[in-house]
Design a binder for these strands. Sequence first.
DNA 1: TCATTATATTACCACACGGTAGTACAATCC
DNA 2: GGATTGTACTACCGTGTGGTAATATAATGA
Lengths: 140, 140
Amino acid sequence: MPAKLMPIKTAKKSVAVQERVDESSISKLTPEALSLMADFFKVLSEVSRLQIVCSLKASAKNVTEIIEETQLGQANVSKHLKMLTQAGVVAREQRGVCVYYRIANPFLFELCDLVFDALTMQAEQQSQQLQQLSQLRQNR
Amino acid sequence: MPAKLMPIKTAKKSVAVQERVDESSISKLTPEALSLMADFFKVLSEVSRLQIVCSLKASAKNVTEIIEETQLGQANVSKHLKMLTQAGVVAREQRGVCVYYRIANPFLFELCDLVFDALTMQAEQQSQQLQQLSQLRQNR
DNA sequence: TCATTATATTACCACACGGTAGTACAATCC
DNA sequence: GGATTGTACTACCGTGTGGTAATATAATGA
């Protein structure tokens, strides 16, 4: 039974006890905890997997539908879905002959939107800086 | 000049125009945009780099200090710092002989805390489900 | 000048991983 | 039974990348 996680707003509830961390802090995490985080990020660090995740945003889909939407190879999609499932990012559900996958935790979309916005702003700032630079060069 | 990005709360301001996306949505991103996101996640998908990022949470540090704190090899740290710098995650600043690095965008910590909380809750739920399962087995 | 310190770079190895062809397997249909 | 469909798995190849030793470079100090 795939478990729904709570939305971000209420997520701070009970953090694993981490001998006196200054409240939700990355600074003193053990290498093991960092390894878990790294694994999570690794799952999201491939375009194909992000494509699959995106294709599941609107609704749950079976493998064939995912293949059609992403234009990825069948074995490839199957492999990625296995990884996404093991990571708890998507949930698997057999319906008759087909196997449907869905996002296990809507938190993922908030996260991706956040990252996308940050990257967008970063890109904007960089282009602004380039503009300022070229203006400086012209005014010289 | 490393640019500070805005905190999460106000980050939604100006998203790159993406022909009628339903407001901050991953669902219809181009493969190119997904590729940028994947690259960002890939930077954070290695324990060593997360260790370096963590070591910079308290304050900016030079390479030698980072090496001491993380216990990583010098060439290794240098390589990772280059990658982190190119990704815009950390900023480089030469002070005399030493080179100091600092987190370029505090947004990163909010992101990592969010992910850590989510992973923690996920782990908690899984252990709860295991408990329930073993109880079911006993009551049988 | 020579040694030392701080950082970066290169070359190399080992390994992980993405993609794919081929195969397996179950269910359904003819 | 035989063919087809939907999904998973295995084997394999090529590439990317983390770690490290060795080297480079620049600055500082003896």
